[in-house]
Simulated scan of single mutants.
Amino acid sequence: MTVHLHVITGGPGSGKSRLIEALAAEGLAHMPEAGRAIIQQQVAIGGAALPWADRMAFAELMLGWELRSHQEARERGVPVILDRGIPDVIGYLQVCGLPVPHHLWKAAELFRYNRRVFIAPHWPEIFQQDVERKQDSVEAEATHRSMVDVYTRLGYELLPLPRTSIPERVRFVRANLP
C-alpha cells in the first residue's frame, strides 16, 4: 500500500472533480480522472472504446490509465489526490453487468492506495448529465453502491464526503489526510 496516494471516488455527478480542482488550487498534487479524458480522446479519433460502444475496451483503457497514474503518483513521493483508482474500473464493469477479468482484480490487489478512501455519496441535487456523462441518476447511484462494494471488498476504509460546499469539503479532506 502506498500511503501518500489518496483516492476520491463515488458515482458520477457527486462533486468529486470540483473538489479535486479546489484541492489542486490549494497546492495539493493530483491525478486526473481517466473516464472523461478517454471519452474525449476516443471521440476525437473516431475510436470505439466508449461506454456507449465497447464497454470492455473502455474499461481496459481506463485500467491502463489508472496504472500509469498510480506509478506517476507513487514516484512523486508527496501526497497525491487521485480522481478514482483501479478499483473504480472493477466497479464500472459490475455496474455494466460485465465480467471482471482476473487481471483487473490482480491489478487492484497489487497497486494499492492509502487505506482510507474518500467517497462522494450520490447527490441527486447536484447531479447533471453532459456530453461525456450520459449516465442517468439511477446509474450514478448504482455506481456509488458498486464503489462501496469493491473498495470494501478490497479492504479499504471508506470515508464519506459530506454533502456540503466545496470549501467545507476541502476542509474535511485536509482534516482527514495523514
Rank of each mutant, 00 (worst) to 15 (best):
residue 52 W to V: 05
residue 74 R to D: 09
residue 113 Y to H: 12
residue 162 P to Y: 07
residue 144 H to E: 12
residue 148 V to H: 07
residue 169 R to M: 07
residue 3 V to D: 14
residue 6 H to D: 00
residue 126 I to F: 14
residue 66 E to L: 07
residue 18 R to F: 05
residue 66 E to F: 04
residue 173 V to N: 07
residue 62 M to A: 15
residue 109 E to D: 12
residue 10 G to H: 02
residue 86 I to Q: 10
residue 17 S to D: 03
residue 94 Q to G: 02
residue 77 G to R: 03
residue 23 L to I: 02
residue 90 I to Q: 09
residue 41 Q to E: 15
residue 110 L to A: 15
residue 69 S to H: 13
residue 47 G to W: 06
residue 18 R to A: 15
residue 100 V to H: 11
residue 166 I to G: 12
residue 57 A to T: 01
residue 97 G to D: 11
residue 151 Y to S: 12
residue 53 A to M: 05
residue 132 E to M: 09
residue 118 F to T: 04
residue 111 F to Y: 15
residue 72 E to W: 03
residue 23 L to T: 02
residue 117 V to L: 14
residue 27 G to C: 06
residue 29 A to G: 00
residue 164 T to I: 06
residue 68 R to H: 08
residue 152 T to G: 15
residue 70 H to Q: 05
residue 48 A to P: 00
residue 26 E to F: 00
residue 106 K to L: 15
residue 96 C to H: 11
residue 29 A to I: 00
residue 109 E to I: 02
residue 141 E to M: 13
residue 63 L to A: 14
residue 103 H to S: 13
residue 97 G to R: 09
residue 163 R to Y: 03
residue 136 D to S: 10
residue 162 P to D: 11
residue 48 A to C: 06
residue 63 L to E: 10
residue 154 L to K: 05
residue 15 G to N: 00
residue 101 P to Y: 09
residue 58 F to Q: 02
residue 178 P to C: 09
residue 16 K to C: 04
residue 89 V to K: 07
residue 155 G to F: 11
residue 157 E to D: 15
residue 40 Q to F: 05
residue 14 S to H: 00
residue 41 Q to Y: 05
residue 29 A to N: 04
residue 171 R to A: 15
residue 46 G to F: 12
residue 138 V to F: 14
residue 60 E to P: 00
residue 51 P to L: 14
residue 7 V to Y: 01
residue 76 R to E: 07
residue 172 F to A: 10
residue 88 D to Y: 05
residue 116 R to F: 04
residue 30 H to D: 01
residue 52 W to A: 10
residue 172 F to K: 02
residue 4 H to C: 03
residue 146 S to C: 12
residue 46 G to P: 01
residue 85 G to S: 15
residue 44 A to G: 08
residue 21 E to K: 06
residue 109 E to P: 00
residue 40 Q to L: 15
residue 16 K to G: 02
residue 173 V to W: 08
residue 157 E to R: 13
residue 175 A to C: 04
residue 12 P to L: 05
residue 142 A to Y: 03
residue 48 A to W: 01
residue 157 E to I: 10
residue 92 Y to V: 11
residue 39 I to L: 14
residue 176 N to G: 06
residue 129 Q to R: 14
residue 133 R to G: 10
residue 88 D to K: 02
residue 3 V to F: 09
residue 95 V to I: 14
residue 150 V to R: 05
residue 162 P to H: 07
residue 36 R to Y: 05
residue 1 M to S: 13
residue 158 L to Q: 10
residue 66 E to H: 13
residue 102 H to P: 00
residue 56 M to W: 02
residue 60 E to I: 01
residue 163 R to N: 06
residue 147 M to Y: 14
residue 109 E to L: 15
residue 172 F to M: 09
residue 169 R to W: 04
residue 22 A to G: 05
residue 28 L to G: 02
residue 84 R to G: 10
residue 150 V to F: 13
residue 42 Q to V: 06
residue 46 G to L: 12
residue 169 R to G: 06
residue 141 E to N: 12
residue 60 E to V: 03
residue 134 K to T: 14
residue 77 G to K: 01
residue 52 W to S: 06
residue 5 L to K: 01
residue 174 R to K: 15
residue 53 A to I: 09
residue 163 R to T: 06
residue 34 A to P: 01
residue 89 V to D: 10
residue 73 A to T: 02
residue 103 H to N: 13
residue 164 T to E: 10
residue 11 G to I: 01
residue 155 G to Q: 10
residue 13 G to Q: 01
residue 85 G to R: 04
residue 48 A to V: 11
residue 15 G to I: 01
residue 105 W to R: 06
residue 80 V to W: 06
residue 92 Y to D: 09
